[in-house]
Write a protein that binds this DNA or RNA. Structure first.
Lengths: 199, 199, 199, 199
DNA sequence: CATGAATGAGGCTTCATTCAT
DNA sequence: CATGAATGAAGCCTCATTCAT
């Protein structure tokens, strides 16, 4: 649940909303720096609020982690949508992959969180916002992929599912080579080349 | 450290060695199921020994995680060595990649542990068995790679470093598609295709 | 550290302060009875709080021991200051020694804690409240000593340093004879007589 | 019990006796260095035997601590006996005090162990060797004291009991000033002066 | 609503002691 | 007898979560 009282339509008070944002930002920063096992207290500290406030907004630790993660999914989906109508579908597609990898290369817990998906989603039922965010990203990426394939820039035997898994792996590859930008570029180049049509 | 006080040459008593194996096996199972943050207590339970016994063999939690991980590195290196003299270098190389991915597909903590490498190795100095195991694997894989490149099966602009990072990512990709063997095969195929020479 | 985050000026909430006092009192009682190695759990039990609460107030076992000890130093310094302006410097001085010994006679960990000084202070740097409390006591005692020497009640070849060590020993002597008040008085009398001017 | 199977008259085999001595020596060294909380394993290591052997000789940790302590009492008593017939009773008496303090100044756990006496003796019944060793020391010191008093070197209102407690305190004083020999000498001088006859 | 103190389960680790080899 | 592996209680400390202020 990324929005407390979701569905009851009670819009958060201004200060409450502000706190929520600050907590999310703080959580993102802290999780990036120390991984998602960082203590809630640390997040609260970074956000400049008390722990109680964090728990009011995100009743559970997983709730907070999920919310951070969903935020990222949304930003990625947003980016995918921006590129959707590019006149150069191939460029748009591979450009998006770069964005993804670049994001993953610096954001520590990102790949983990992504990978945790398969598990968590099952465990947390279908109630939360996660499936929605996930679906939106998948849809947006799917469109990018389809156009790129139509344009002949990407092989046709790849579906969104494989692409998704490949990107999760690529994120890890990128993270692994975090410190060497050139090496990272080359490794990702290899992986992405695999997506191009075989002659 | 895969052998306590390694280097002092005192071979463990029969029962001690048996327990050590049981603990390692238990740890592998538990870490696979719940990740390497699983409690030492859980490992002890699975192994059918008391906690104290686990700590006698692996004085520290990281020691245990490392030992499990090193075991995997060794098995992989072993496999790489077996394939070293294959008459079909390209087949040997890609066959090895399959093994790797197959192993990773079921072993949860594997990718994490691998990824943790960069950090842990630095932190744990060069004292343990880890660097050795790591070096051996790298060497064995390097030979496989070189032969495959010489045989024209793999593009020449890929080094062991990139390969390593790519494989770590591929492990994650495979894990992600754990449940769908066909899909997994296709995704890995794409990634591995990226390694073939561009026409 | 006798006040958590001392110096930041945030006064504890009423209930927190109350708990803090209870914990200190409990620690004093428990340490007196079983020595400072008594478990934190025991202290918590005596104070009627959960362990977590003890650790919130005193993040570390040594912190707790130190706090108890500092409390005692302060009480002694207070007593010394009260006696500072006595019209009978010699009486004031020896009266203070009685107080000290009396306190020490019942308080088990006292001598130990005092003795631990040389070590702990070095180890714990100059950050905490300890050096301050220690210095204040030394200063107050120094004044008492100087006046007594000026009044001819105490030999002049004794400095605060020796006096301090002697008192630590006397505390142990007193503790040793805890159960026999008369005997204790005589033993301390002998030790204190050593401080009087030789004819 | 400082002698296993005490009273059954079975004299230890030569190697067993040798081990016993080595363990005692090791324990003395280790306890001096790290205090009596040092692990039995550490003692075993220092002695070059296995833990099991230590426990065979001293079935319990307190047994070992006590044995070490008794050894010291005996050595002190021995020293006192040597001085018993000195032609200079006063010199002999104060010389003995020096020995005592000197021993205590370097031997970490000594004062503690001595002080622990009151408690342990009660707890451990009267069965062990401790009371005997204690009594012998007291007797020997008593003789030294009596002769010194007869010779006018020591005030007559001091008994062995007080003396004992004073010495325990002095040991602590000496330990406190361990690092400064001159200061230590002066402080002990003051304490011992208290024992001289008042004019 | 926010605050931050209290709770207490749970994790890691040490160590006296037992006992199979 | 010696060895050293196994046991498991106990200690310290962390942290998600609750709730009085």
């Amino acid at each position: 649940m990324s929005e407390p009282r979701a569905g009851e339509g009670r819009p958060l008070r201004a200060d409450a909303r502000r706190n929520r944002e600050r907590i999310l930002a703080a959580a993102e920063a802290v999780f990036d720096a120390k991984g998602p096992e960082a203590s809630t207290e640390a997040v609260a500290g970074e956000a400049g609020v008390a722990v109680g406030t964090v728990f009011r907004h995100f009743p559970t630790k997983p709730d907070l982690v999920e919310a951070v993660f969903i935020g990222r999914l949304r930003r990625l989906a947003e980016r995918a949508r921006e590129l959707a109508d590019s006149p150069d579908p191939g460029g748009a597609f591979f450009g998006f992959l770069e964005t993804w990898a670049e994001l993953a290369a610096t954001k520590h817990a990102f790949a983990d969180a992504l990978a945790a998906t398969g598990v968590d989603v099952a465990a947390r039922a279908a109630g939360g916002d996660y499936p929605v965010a996930r679906a939106e990203l998948t849809a947006a990426v799917g469109r990018l992929l389809a156009r790129a394939q139509d344009g002949g820039a990407v092989r046709r035997d790849v579906g969104v599912e494989e692409l998704n898994a490949i990107l999760i792996g690529a994120a890890r590859t990128a993270e692994q080579l975090r410190s060497d930008r050139a090496l990272r570029g080359r490794a990702l180049g290899v992986v992405f080349d695999g997506l191009r049509p075989r002659p």
